[in-house]
């Protein structure tokens, strides 16, 4: 028995009276319970909204979900049953691949500049400010911008949609990557410099590998965000009923756009397909988010 245990009297109720003032303690206990109750309720409300959405999408989407839905383009008319959104899936995949291939390296390089070179300089401040503004810009503005600047001259097409998605993804990747690069401990950079590594060698061999899991998480979250964007696509790719693989000057479909079109038509078959498309999109976004969480948990810094 150690000293502290020995100092406490063994008797049950008298112990409590000796160490606590009953009135104060009960008042605090009640306040504690009340606040814990509020927080629990707030949590329940926010989680149940997400839960209900998922539940409803799954319930309504499973009706039209089938192998045919995943592999076939939609029928000619919204009235007809059967068919699917494979053309939208292909369009979304094309645009996401192009947008990621452009925005990920560009965003990471900008983040390296901000974290390692720019510091508190004017240019760095400017880039940070505009990145923050860009994350807040409604995505339909991005669509309008690409429409007036490019689509009016070059026509609708996958490349136009990819440009719009790139503009949406870039600031997300820049800011999240910068945060991750700043988390790399100074100790590690010092160790690298002390071994005679130049600044660029330190960045390439120590800083970027250490921050890689975190950077990938940011990229995945940006992809998930872009996958669900609808408004900018209306103005840049227009949508199509057939499978299109041309990147240039031909309207192409995308999953969110097909959901939008399907949901606002008055025919049951079209609405059914929209629900199944919503389920498909939710699963895709969820997969990217989970992948992001998985990569984040592997982070070693």
């Amino acid at each position: 028995m150690n000293g502290i245990d020995a100092a406490i009297p063994v008797a049950g109720e008298s112990t409590l009276n000796r160490w606590t003032d009953e009135r104060v303690a009960s008042g605090r206990r009640w306040r504690n319970r009340l606040m814990a109750g509020f927080m629990g309720a707030a949590l329940a409300v926010s989680v149940s909204v997400v839960g209900l959405i998922l539940l409803y999408v799954v319930k309504a989407g499973l009706g039209a979900m089938s192998w045919e839905f995943l592999t076939q383009p939609p029928p000619y008319s919204y009235r007809l049953e059967g068919g699917g959104f494979v053309n939208g899936l292909i369009g979304t995949a094309i645009m996401l691949v192009f947008a990621t291939v452009v925005s990920a390296p560009m965003g990471v390089m900008a983040a390296v500049y901000l974290a390692e070179y720019g510091g508190k300089g004017t240019l760095a401040k400017l880039i940070r400010f505009f990145s923050d503004v860009m994350t807040g810009v409604p995505s339909v503005f991005v669509g309008l911008f690409v429409y007036t600047a490019l689509v009016t001259s070059f026509g609708f097409g996958a490349s136009m949609g990819a440009i719009a998605l790139t503009i949406i993804m870039l600031p997300i990747i820049i800011r999240s990557s910068e945060e991750m690069l700043r988390l790399v401990p100074r100790d590690l950079k010092d160790a690298s410099h002390a071994l005679g590594a130049s600044k660029s060698q330190t960045i390439v061999r120590v800083v970027l590998p250490s921050a890689a899991p975190g950077i990938s998480t940011g990229v995945m979250l940006a992809v998930a965000r872009a996958a669900g964007e609808t408004a900018p696509l209306i103005l840049t790719i227009l949508g199509a009923q057939a499978i299109v693989t041309k990147l240039w000057d031909e309207a192409i479909a995308a999953l969110p756009l097909q959901i939008f079109d399907g949901a606002r038509n008055p025919f049951a078959a079209g609405v059914e397909r929209a629900w199944a498309g919503a389920l498909e999109l939710v699963v895709i976004v969820l997969a990217f988010t989970l992948l992001a969480r998985l990569l984040a948990s592997r982070s070693r810094i």
Binding site: P185, D187, D190, A191, S192, A194, S198
Partner: peptide
């Protein structure tokens, strides 16, 4: 300075191995 540090090595207060 990079060449200087190739001739004059350093060990720090806190062990700082790379996560490799």
């Amino acid at each position: 300075p990079v060449v200087v540090r190739r001739h004059i090595g350093m060990v720090f207060q806190r062990p700082n191995p790379f996560p490799k």
